[in-house]
Design a binder for these strands. Structure first.
Lengths: 368, 368
DNA sequence: CTGAAAGCGCTAACAG
DNA sequence: CTGTTAGCGCTTTCAG
């Protein structure tokens, strides 16, 4: 393979980038012919086509996408707005989407909203300024700010998080089913004192996981104790603090369901420092399956989301919308729900009869 | 805050995007005046300026960056090529870079090369087609393919990985120092049988970490046993396999240095399954500090890289080059080396006298 | 201080 | 089949 990268030489002083006219001149044809060769839009005699291709090769010509975009109104670019790139979940969804987009000749404009609505807004403006053809977004603003979008035809799909009460096109995992499966698994092993650590309920994802937990508990005829619900924080630290409190209370749980990967990290960290053994002292279920979950000791039972699949599916919906718009067709909104998978590992085990009645309390002072 | 997003309505059939002429017409000025207001390039009387701003507001006008880019030759876009987005290390570097770029009004074109040189090449072509002003890259092709770039003036900075034997502008961590610090730390605790799990030596990063290990061992007058060097794989599975083999050999190590986050995951997973305790049976040092390292039990002593800092620094160098090019100045290449930090946690402990001579062997059959 | 007009590189009618 | 030409939306001289 010959890696020339000679276009980089254009950066040198003096040598300007070759344009379609340079190619046309060298090939002794018109610019229209060159364009036709590039885009395959018209029949060109093979002799001239070869001349054109040779000229492009010699000059190392790359069509200017911006000029093309200006002319055609199609940029072949998709904007992505993510609340936190360093959360592996989003990185994986994006990787899946990128793959699908690349296959269709599309590229990604990436924006990190950092969970700040103001930044999200700025980024959306910027994306639009660059005339992206569509937007893929995991929104951080759950208000009704997006309502207007829903009635419009700008190609846009939400993923992971859906703005509150909207019927936009979106692809999410069935978070309620996930929460239900996790809780159900614990119940089947005889656990009754099951705590849940759940992030902010502003996030549709977390709210639904809590719903699933509730549903399973209610079906089992068990009460939902508010002391067992760790609400209102998305950080490792919050989960850590809540877990510590849990085991200093008069009746600690025998199992904990952590509804996101970050929360799991905080919970596990606390368990380690409290000197509690898993699954002997407490069973754990996590959410979002990443490589390290399997490297913990013991490996963590986890509700896995189909991350990359989510990205691919989102792109599919996006292309659907893009095409519809191009043909000026209306396209009905659809919410795709992907099923989560419970991966059972060794962090969950049946409760012993003894533990069931007298759960493990850690004295206030103790922090290994 | 009023979130209107009304530009999305332009997606509707019929209503075209407002252009600078629409604004000019509504404000009853010329397009040149509107442009001057937008860019602040000329003095405009405040009365007319207000008229223009109002018109922009009313029409919800967003300047077309592509048209602007075509005209000015400056796209305000930077291309990023990453070998694996789902590796948190790259995600964090990128997050740092994105932050710096956003502050300067630049956006990111993101590409995942997936460790494939061919894809990398395609992505670079694509980026150029879109007329990015600069490229930030962690290359997957360590051949001399980039040599030509080095003598050119296209703004480009390598990060993390440097192409073999090049003197390009780059920002990396001092991987040799990192490897040295990790090994040194283990030596100080009395370890002598220290194994290293290191990825492919094609990667400058891993090669340098191995160098550091070697240097520390030699300084301590200890032999470098090839059975203790797990070379040639970047995956979790490879590290897992190598670790298992290590403890089935006649003389297992008392400490292991894992030279990347993925390798650590594989190693720790094996340890758990072999039923080995850390740090009693074996001490562990990892590379790349991520939240989960601290959640392991015990928390893992790790060489931390300044990830976000690396991204910021890379952007700084990039802007330096962009400005130089704009002014047609030459700019000398510089390789910035960031210092790593050893974060000591509980996965490393002094070797007991007994273990030092008779290290723990796991029988062939045993896999918990 | 303001506006008319040229043209960035490309595509798509439209004529030959 | 091929070439001429008119813009896409914007910035930027250059005259007023």
């Amino acid at each position: 393979m010959c890696l020339s990268y000679s276009w980089l030489e254009w950066g040198m002083s003096g040598k300007p980038k070759p344009t379609i006219r340079d190619v046309a001149r060298l090939a002794a044809v018109s610019t229209a012919t060159v364009s036709a060769v590039i885009n395959g839009t018209k029949n060109v005699s093979s002799k001239r086509e070869k001349r054109v291709r040779d000229a492009m090769e010699v000059l190392d010509y790359y069509a200017d996408q911006n000029a093309r975009s200006l002319r055609t109104g199609q940029s072949r670019v998709i904007g992505a707005v993510i609340p936190d790139l360093t959360n592996t979940f989003y990185a994986e969804v994006l990787a899946g989407a990128e793959e699908a987009a690349a296959a269709a000749g599309y590229s990604f404009f990436l924006c990190n909203s950092n969970e700040e609505p103001a930044q999200e807004r700025r980024h959306l403006d910027m994306l639009f300024s660059h005339r992206v053809e569509a937007v893929l977004i995991a929104c951080c603003d759950s208000s009704t700010a997006y309502d207007r979008l829903l009635r419009r035809r700008f190609p846009l799909v939400f993923f992971d998080r859906i703005p509150h009460g909207s019927h936009a096109t979106a692809v999410v995992t069935d978070n309620q089913a996930g929460g239900y499966a996790a809780t159900q698994h614990l119940l089947k092993q005889g656990h009754e004192a099951i705590a849940i650590i759940v992030g902010s309920l502003d996030r549709s994802t977390h709210a639904h996981r809590l719903d699933g937990y509730r549903m399973a508990m209610q079906e089992a005829g068990l009460p939902i104790r508010s002391e067992y619900c760790g609400l209102g924080g998305l950080s490792i630290e919050t989960a850590y603090g809540f877990t510590v409190d849990l085991f200093r209370s008069s009746k600690p749980p025998t199992a904990i369901f952590c509804s996101s990967n970050k929360l799991l990290l905080g919970c596990v960290r606390a368990l380690g420092q409290l000197g509690l053994r898993c699954p002997e002292d407490v069973s754990i279920v996590g959410y979002d399956d990443f490589p390290w979950n399997e490297s913990f000791h013991p490996p963590i039972t986890t509700v896995a989301q189909p991350n990359r699949e989510m990205g691919r599916k989102a792109m599919e919906l996006l292309f659907h919308q893009i095409n519809a718009r191009r043909e000026n067709r209306a396209v009905s909104d659809q919410a795709v729900m992907l099923p989560p998978t419970l991966r059972v590992r060794s962090s969950t085990a049946p409760v012993s009869a003894a533990r069931k009645t007298i759960s493990k309390v850690v004295e206030s002072g103790k922090l290994v």
